[in-house]
Simulated assay, not measured.
Amino acid sequence: MVCVIKHIPTHLQAHQTQLQLQGTLIQTHHQVHETRFHMQQAELAALPETDRRRQAQMVETLQVIRDMRREMSDMQTELLALRGQQRRARQPGPEARIIDHQDASGDADSHI
């Protein structure tokens, strides 16, 4: 019986240490959950600002795309105008003689 009584303080001390560790673990878990909750709240509070920034970026991107399309359209119009000028420059004027192939062959026969 004396052996059992000697071990009671050691058991009691081990049990108290175990309870302290469990208490510390519970507090740590609580702090982790509380920290996670606060981080989520901060993220939720920042969402409207994030959405506003993303919408502003989209508006800016769409404006750039619209401007690029306008420039491409202007360039295409200019290119078509230049092609038209080149065609008109290659066409003979009203004073140019149009060769009639039938007349040309008759002219060739008359020279023989």
Results as ranks from 00 to 15, higher is better:
residue 52 R to T: 00
residue 102 Q to G: 05
residue 30 H to I: 11
residue 92 P to W: 04
residue 12 L to Y: 09
residue 31 Q to M: 04
residue 35 T to K: 04
residue 15 H to K: 09
residue 19 L to G: 06
residue 8 I to D: 02
residue 91 Q to T: 07
residue 29 H to Y: 13
residue 78 E to C: 07
residue 24 T to Q: 15
residue 42 A to R: 14
residue 12 L to W: 01
residue 13 Q to E: 07
residue 4 V to P: 01
residue 3 C to D: 14
residue 58 M to C: 12
residue 42 A to W: 04
residue 61 T to R: 15
residue 3 C to L: 12
residue 42 A to K: 10
residue 100 D to E: 03
residue 20 Q to W: 00
residue 60 E to Q: 11
residue 66 R to Y: 11
residue 99 I to C: 10
residue 104 A to T: 10
residue 110 S to G: 11
residue 27 Q to E: 08
residue 110 S to H: 15
residue 58 M to K: 10
residue 107 D to N: 05
residue 16 Q to H: 00
residue 95 E to C: 04
residue 99 I to M: 07
residue 86 Q to D: 15
residue 11 H to I: 05
residue 10 T to Q: 03
residue 52 R to M: 03
residue 76 Q to A: 11
residue 18 Q to N: 08
residue 25 L to W: 00
residue 100 D to R: 02
residue 71 E to A: 14
residue 100 D to I: 05
residue 36 R to F: 10
residue 94 P to H: 00
residue 110 S to M: 11
residue 112 I to S: 08
residue 60 E to L: 02
residue 24 T to H: 12
residue 24 T to K: 13
residue 33 H to D: 14
residue 2 V to C: 08
residue 100 D to N: 06
residue 107 D to F: 10
residue 28 T to E: 12
residue 77 T to H: 04
residue 112 I to Q: 01
residue 40 Q to W: 07
residue 73 S to Q: 03
residue 51 D to A: 00
residue 86 Q to Y: 13
residue 7 H to E: 10
residue 33 H to A: 15
residue 46 A to G: 01
residue 75 M to T: 14
residue 79 L to E: 06
residue 8 I to W: 09
residue 66 R to V: 04
residue 112 I to W: 01
residue 84 G to V: 03
residue 22 Q to T: 03
residue 5 I to R: 11
